[in-house]
Nucleic acid binder design. Sequence first.
DNA 1: ATGCCTATTATTAATAGA
Length: 260
Amino acid sequence: MRIVTYNVNGIGARLPNLLRWLDERSPDVVCLQELKAPQEKFPELAIRAAGYGVIWHGQKSWNGVAILARGREPAEIRRVLPGDPEDAHSRYIEAQIDGITVGSLYLPNGNPAPGPRFDYKLRWLERLTRHAAELIAGGSPVVLAGDYNVIPTERDVYKPERWVDDALFRVEVREAFAVLVRQGWTDALRALHPDEQIYTFWDYFRNAYQRDAGLRIDHLLMSPTLTPRLQQAGVDRDVRGWEKASDHAPTWIELRSEGA
DNA sequence: ATGCCTATTATTAATAGA
């Protein structure tokens, strides 16, 4: 079973690429971020015609998250991250699929830092950490997949010194992410590839992809009860090189079947 | 320190992204 996180940077502009990728790779579960489309503009029929059940939470212009499941319907659990009734951003959706709780999340960028946007990012990370603790306490297998907008370590950025004051790499953010992971989560790509350079995002600027000037900011965190099933993890790097590509590439885990 | 490029929305320019 393959579970993927993919920040599409606009579901409208990316639909041809998304459909091609679904057809070529046949992922089982897909967590999308940055739909950048209101609820009623999501291309539900095209996704269903490709063979996927889907739930989504849209928003005009920005944000927006979805969960796709091949040949079945994701059973929605929630479409809001608990902890702030005032937060109107569509950045979290959660479903049950084949006995696994799947969260698709889009953590705030937080720039410029310091400032109110950065404060919002830190508060959102705190809320995610509280919710994640409850998920672990529940004992069910969980994967929290998404664009975390967090570069976890110096190894995860092409030129760390240029990013020290950026909201994706500031010490407070890295520490907050480490606190979350220490609850017992497994950063799947890093766990299976401890010494490799792995990027999931390349800026549109300055030929970043051609220069391999990337960041690792899309992550799949696995709960202690799911981690034993982890078999492979990787990034569909080539998709970033397609015409009209998103600036993020699909990032995935492959799970052994239950009891195998 | 800033722009570079891209998508969206509202009218050819502003905002946000990371």
